[in-house]
């Protein structure tokens, strides 16, 4: 019990961020017309590509000779980039089509 409470106090900032983000996500999505569901899913897909930041940190911290870490980190950055770049480009392509309608 005590440990749990300590943990909450120690990480209260993060806990606040998480809770507020959860509600924000729900609110932002709640009013989307179904027309935009696919582009939205794709856009959200690109946004969770932020994992790439973790991958960059892993990669950047890896010691020179540690090939396992270097290779895995390289792969992680590569896959993360695919997620981010591919996600945003695909979304843009979808939305481009809505654009020209008058």
């Amino acid at each position: 019990m005590e440990i749990a409470l300590d943990w909450i106090t120690l990480h209260q900032q993060i806990i606040y961020i998480v809770i507020l983000s959860v509600f924000l996500g729900i609110e932002v999505i709640g009013r989307v017309p179904s027309v935009l569901h696919t582009p939205l899913m794709s856009g959200a897909n690109a946004i969770h590509g932020v994992v790439i930041i973790g991958a960059i940190i892993v990669m950047g911290k890896a010691e020179e000779g540690n090939y396992a870490a270097l290779i895995l980190g390289f792969l992680a950055v590569l896959l993360g980039t695919l997620n981010v770049v591919g996600g945003f480009v695909v979304t843009d392509r979808m939305l481009e089509m809505f654009k020209k309608k008058k």
Binding site: I14, I17, V18, S21, V22, F23, L24, G25, I26, V28, I29, G30, H37, L40, M41, A44, N45, I47, H48, V50, V51
Partner: peptide, 14 residues
């Protein structure tokens, strides 16, 4: 953190 959680909750609602 924010990016991940936003997508997590938005994706769940979707």
């Amino acid at each position: 953190l924010t990016g991940g959680i936003l997508v997590g909750s938005a994706g769940t609602i979707l």
